[in-house]
């Protein structure tokens, strides 16, 4: 993999590092719990877990400022937690309850928060890409200097509308960061079986959009790249592409037996490149935190996640009258 080496001397405080650890751990424990609730039949339909990819959203959110926007595909739980949405509201949406972000009417793939500038949660592969550029268009039109993080996967990168969007984003200098979360598998199809070039960000060159590869298992490398991209966009230089090489440990969705890759491959990434373990080690060797400190964080996260599960189970189903609300404004 041509990913960048880990940042040698992180320009980051122990407190910040601890915060990233905490946020990544929250996503992982939340997703494990979601998987468990799915197994119990409390979550229905499709449920796409973000386990393994945590450093991507946590690193990029560290580079974002108030007013910046973000949107992604259907693998969206991590993005919502990272931008500060309430775990209770997210989990209750997964169980289809009234207390969910969409009152139970959206589900795992369709959640939004105007307060946190989270614009979904999109179930059609690639459809969020022009929408993200459109959000950036609105920022440019209103001259408010915000940027939009538009996340999509290596699978979505083969949709035509992505390139229609690249063209217009470059043509109109839209302040949009295209974040390609390359987890190497488009559902069950490995990247080399679906994509003509090993790196996807190079496709931006055809449109004059600069980009780079980022090690998505290293939260500090992601943050650094994010800051660079944000600076580029805020300077009015148009879009930027970050191809973040990452890996999902779980199947595409809960019903994916994942026979397209070996158990050893997954295990190797877990053991050698896990983004949370990496920060944990940095915290310990850098003496930013003791084992006890980390245990306390673990305990705290477990509590938040358990509470979200309790909330998601006890929140009532939406009232039947909700069937006919929110169709028209």
């Amino acid at each position: 993999m041509a990913a960048k080496k880990a940042t040698k001397k992180p320009n980051v405080s122990g407190e910040e590092l601890k915060e990233y650890y905490r946020e990544m751990l929250l996503i992982r424990r939340f997703e494990e719990k979601a998987g468990q609730l799915y197994g119990m039949g409390l979550i229905g339909g499709f449920c796409h877990l973000y386990i393994g990819q945590e450093a991507v959203v946590v690193g990029l959110e560290a580079a974002a400022e108030e007013g910046d926007k973000r949107l992604t595909s259907y693998r969206d739980h991590g993005h919502m937690l990272a931008c500060g949405m309430d775990p209770n509201g997210v989990m209750a949406e997964l169980t289809g309850r009234e207390g969910g972000y969409s009152k139970g009417k959206g589900g795992s793939m369709h959640m939004f928060s105007s307060e946190k500038h989270f614009y979904g949660g999109h179930g059609i592969v690639g459809a969020q890409v022009p929408i993200g550029a459109g959000l950036a268009f609105s920022d440019k039109y209103k001259k408010n200097n915000s940027v939009t993080f538009t996340y999509f996967g290596d699978g979505a990168a083969n949709q035509g509308q992505v390139y229609e969007t690249f063209n217009m984003a470059a043509l109109w200098d839209l302040p949009v960061i295209f974040v390609i979360e390359n987890n190497q598998y488009a559902m069950g199809t490995a990247q080399q079986r679906s994509t003509s070039s090993p790196d996807i960000y190079v496709r931006g060159e055809a449109f004059g959009i600069p980009g780079e590869i980022v090690d998505g298992m290293d939260v500090l490398a992601v943050k650094e790249a994010g800051e660079k991209a944000v600076m580029h966009c805020r300077a009015g230089k148009g879009p930027y592409i970050l191809e973040v090489k990452t890996y999902r440990y779980r199947g595409h969705s809960m019903s994916d037996p994942a026979k397209y890759r070996t158990r050893e491959e997954v295990q190797r990434v877990r053991e050698e490149r896990d983004p949370i373990e990496r920060v944990r080690e940095m915290l310990l060797t850098g003496k930013h935190a003791s084992e006890e400190d980390l245990k306390a964080i673990d305990k705290d996260i477990k509590k938040i996640v358990n509470e979200s599960a309790e909330f998601a189970k006890s929140s009532p189903e939406p009232a039947v009258s909700e069937l006919y609300t929110d169709i028209l404004a």
């Binding site: 022009p130 929408i131 229609e164």
Partner: peptide, 21 residues
Amino acid sequence: DTPITEHGFAGIAVGAAFGGL
């Protein structure tokens, strides 16, 4: 004026509407 790219500019316009335009 947009390029001839209906899928793309329709999506951009939808995003602009979500963004308050």
